[in-house]
């Protein structure tokens, strides 16, 4: 298992040839109370950088971009019913989508937790 972060504050955790995607704890804090998430359909093919999901607070809406290419194999329907789960556990139970990785090397260029922490601190 490897977890990497993007500059747009998504995280991706690989599990073999699959990966789970969500938004970082920092990102949920910036958004504030999350009130709605829009998830893709299972089976959808995502290119790296495609909009994978949308997350909304009262006053903001943000796209969640796919940090790596792949096919959506599962979505976290529990955050659709209770979006506050993303606030409570953005990097755990509040995950968004699970994909089958098309190109595992996609994540090599992304930041690890330490680099992302430094990136956030600098912004």
């Amino acid at each position: 298992m490897t977890t990497r972060y993007t500059k747009d504050s998504e995280w991706i955790r690989t599990e073999g040839d699959e990966a789970v995607i969500g938004i970082s704890d920092y990102a949920q804090g910036q958004l504030g109370d999350i009130v709605f998430v829009e998830l893709p359909e299972v089976g959808k093919t995502l290119a790296k950088g495609d909009v994978a999901a949308v997350v909304e607070s009262v006053k903001a809406a943000s796209e969640v971009y796919a940090p790596a290419a792949g096919e959506v194999i599962a979505v976290n329907t529990s955050i659709k019913d209770d979006p506050s789960a993303v606030n409570r556990g953005a990097e755990g139970d509040g995950w968004f989508v699970r994909i089958k990785l098309k190109n595992p090397a996609d994540i090599d260029s992304l930041m690890d937790a330490e680099a992302y922490g430094a990136f956030v601190a600098a912004h």
Partner: peptide, 14 residues
């Protein structure tokens, strides 16, 4: 006013 993320002042081109 609610569900304002549908609207132009927040969502702009989307």
């Amino acid at each position: 006013l609610t569900l304002a993320t549908r609207e132009q002042h927040i969502r702009r081109d989307k």
